[in-house]
C-alpha cells in the first residue's frame, strides 16, 4: 500500500540530494501540514491592523483565533481596515448603527463588509457560521452570550483562525481595547466644525502590560495620514 509519506519520499528524492536538504524539506512539509489542520498555531502570523493601532498589540496585530473586548465602535471599525484591504471578508453582526462613512475614511474596503444588523437571539450562532469564512467578525453588545455558547464559538475561532471583536463584555477575552481620551479641535462655541480629533487608545489584558497609542483623526484625508494635521 502506498502511503502519503512514501509518495512524499519519492518526490523529495527526485528534487533533493543530500540528507540535510531532505530533512529540511520534510520539516517544512510537516509545518505546512500542521498549519493547514490547526489553523492558528502559536507562531501563526497576526492579522494585520492599521499602523496607528499596531502598538496596541504585542505581536503588532490581532492574534488569529482570539477574542477582543472592544469598547469603542471607532476602534472596531479601524481594526477592519487592513484585513479588507488584503482581500479578506469581514462581518459586522448585531451592530445596526455601523457607520459606512467612518469605515470608508478608516480605509475599510466597504465591498468586503457584510452586515447582519439584527441577528435576533442568534448572534452567537451567526458569528460562528461566519467565522468559517470571515477573517474578522464584530459582534455587537446587544447579543446575549451563554457560557457554553461562548466556549463553542472560541473553539471554532481557534480552528479557523478568525478574530472576534466583541463590543462589550466577554469572559476570558485576550485584551480590552478602549478609547481613554479624545481631544476635538476645530469646534468652538457656535462656530467651526469637528475638523480633527486626537484619540488615545488603550489595551489592557492578560497577554502583556497595558499599552497605549495616540493618533489623530482628521477630515483632510483618511485616518492613516492624520498626524500631519495634528496642530489643527
Amino acid at each position: 500500500m502506498e502511503t502519503g509519506a512514501a509518495r512524499a519520499w519519492d518526490a523529495v528524492d527526485a528534487s533533493a540530494s543530500s540528507r540535510a536538504e531532505v530533512l529540511a524539506e520534510l520539516n517544512g512539509r510537516i509545518r505546512s501540514m500542521q498549519k493547514a489542520t490547526l489553523g492558528a498555531g502559536a507562531e501563526a502570523p497576526v492579522v494585520p491592523v492599521v499602523s496607528e493601532l499596531r502598538d496596541l498589540f504585542p505581536g503588532g496585530g490581532l492574534r488569529p483565533g482570539g477574542v477582543y473586548e472592544v469598547l469603542s465602535p471607532l476602534l472596531a471599525t479601524m481594526l477592519l481596515a487592513e484585513a479588507t484591504r488584503a482581500g479578506d471578508w469581514v462581518a459586522v453582526v448585531g451592530m445596526p448603527d455601523f457607520s459606512a462613512a467612518a469605515a470608508a475614511s478608516a480605509g475599510v474596503d466597504i465591498a468586503r463588509v457584510v452586515v447582519v444588523p439584527h441577528p435576533g437571539g442568534q448572534g452567537i450562532r451567526v458569528s460562528a457560521t461566519l467565522a468559517d469564512v470571515m477573517s474578522i467578525v464584530v459582534l455587537g453588545e446587544a447579543a446575549d452570550v451563554g457560557a457554553g455558547e461562548a466556549q463553542r464559538l472560541e473553539a471554532r475561532l481557534r480552528r479557523t483562525g478568525s478574530v472576534l471583536l466583541r463590543l462589550g463584555e466577554w469572559a476570558g477575552a485576550e485584551d480590552r481595547l478602549a478609547v481613554a481620551e479624545r481631544q476635538w479641535s476645530g469646534i468652538r462655541a457656535g462656530h467651526g466644525h469637528l475638523a480633527a480629533c486626537q484619540v488615545t487608545a488603550t489595551a489592557r489584558g492578560r497577554a502583556a502590560a497595558p499599552r497605549r497609542v495616540t493618533f489623530v483623526l482628521s477630515e483632510m484625508s483618511d485616518a492613516r495620514d492624520g498626524l500631519e494635521h495634528s496642530n489643527e
Binding site: V114, V115, V116, G120, R125, T129, V133
Partner: peptide, 24 residues
C-alpha cells in the same frame, strides 16, 4: 464561493433581508 455558501446559510437562519452588503 465559500463566503457565498456561508452567507446563504446565515440567510436561512435569520432571513433573506437580514444579511446585507452596504452600498453608497
Amino acid at each position: 464561493q465559500r463566503v457565498h455558501a456561508q452567507l446563504t446559510r446565515v440567510q436561512s437562519m435569520v432571513g433573506h433581508a437580514e444579511v446585507c452588503t452596504i452600498e453608497p
